[in-house]
Design a protein around this nucleic acid. Structure first.
Lengths: 220, 220
DNA sequence: AAAAATTTTTAGATTTACCTAAAAATAAAA
DNA sequence: TTTTATTTTTAGGTAAATCTAAAAATTTTT
């Protein structure tokens, strides 16, 4: 059984490992909002417990045991987010902090019943996949909106940025999960993208386009 | 803002203060499952924060601020218990430990939305009243079953013991909240009570009768 | 390949909540 | 009202998670 803090480290390492094979001390420190020295201490502890593989100065990676524990936390986080949005009418930009607390509640029974109560959802309010109770989940095939070409179209099925500011911005533009979009132009000057959605022309910055995930349905 | 641990102390002091005016160090230690010396330390801290009144060797009592914080935790605990039973189909003897964790989730918004989602319940699965968001709740008028006389009748509206063993026992006897009962006999020998409920004669020990709360509807 | 910059680790402290053992205060019994 | 028992507090220490400052290793630049 891991402490609240250990769980947070495992979760952060898990997410960082999605980008780089081995995870750097500084990267963890930034995510946890702590100092690199503290991270080194905790990494040693996690290594002793067999949750991470660690070679001094070479970064860490999760062991199978560590990954499994991390996925369990991710599962809880995402299920609670669904609960907050579907049942308590939170908006998708309001759920992160509360789910961050709820994910640490320790009761296998609670999570299985919650899963059932929510109808065994496959993805959370941001389109992220929810692992099943065995830790398995479909690696969904997302394409970043920024990588589409003029004429391409698809459906918004996720975001890769969960900040409230970003999500509120999308909300205001009407770019929510499930929306159909088509690329109509890409501006040479600033790389901003012109898209057609709900019969309206919308211009989004490169930065925004990077964090919208599309399940492509090819060219129209 | 209180820590997890401080919240537990406040809650325990609140409950103990329902029985005795000022609360003893040893009584707190027993509830928190810690040593009296640790309790003294924490009490000093709570006193410094203005949450309890404390005179050395004389026990503690909650200040208005402390009581308000305690009631807030009790409110959360009881609302989560309703959620677990009403929505996730937990039994009334299974909810305590999980609610003990959930009660520490810090989000005013969450609790108000949960309250609404549950339909603003007035009492929890054990019949205990749920404070409203201002900390107000009706002091319900309960009578202990043990204090009823032969011929008296009433409705089971609460229990004063939340252990799983006790609740499972009641469940097996069919003595759940809302059940009508009538006292048919009191045994001289061991003080056990003979009651009529759902057209069945049931014998319950004195110890059990002490912890069943009745809202009396007089003699029939 | 040496110098500079960055990253990471060590060493030594701090804070929170807890502990044991012994001393002090209070309450109960003789 | 002493003596005894109980309760509570103090004193000094521990473990978890953090910190700062300085040292060590690695990476990047020149």
């Amino acid at each position: 059984m891991q402490s609240f803090t250990e769980e947070n480290y495992l979760k952060v390492i898990y997410h960082l490992a999605e980008k780089t094979e081995t995870v750097q001390t500084n990267a963890i420190a930034e995510q946890i909002q702590t100092k690199p020295a503290s991270v080194t201490d905790m990494i040693k502890k996690l290594a002793d417990k067999g949750l991470v593989d660690y070679i001094k100065y070479q970064g860490v990676s999760l062991t199978d045991k560590g990954r499994s524990a991390a996925i369990d936390i991710v599962r809880k986080h995402r299920l609670w987010e669904v609960f907050l949005v579907d049942k308590l009418n939170f908006k998708w930009d309001e759920v992160h902090d509360v789910a961050e607390e709820l994910e640490h509640i320790k009761s296998v029974d609670l999570i299985e019943r919650l899963d059932e109560f929510l109808g065994f959802p496959k993805s959370d309010p941001h389109g992220d996949p929810i692992p099943d109770k065995h830790g398995r989940f479909a690696k969904t095939q997302f394409i970043k909106l920024i990588d589409l070409k003029v004429g391409d179209s698809g459906t918004i099925t996720g975001v890769s940025q969960h900040s409230s500011a970003f999500l509120k911005h999308l909300e205001k533009l009407g770019l929510t999960l499930g929306k159909q979009i088509q690329i109509t132009d890409v501006t040479d000057f600033d790389g901003s993208v012109e898209i057609l959605s709900s019969e309206k022309q919308i211009n989004i910055s490169r930065e925004v386009a990077k964090h919208i995930l599309i399940s492509s349905n090819g060219k129209i």
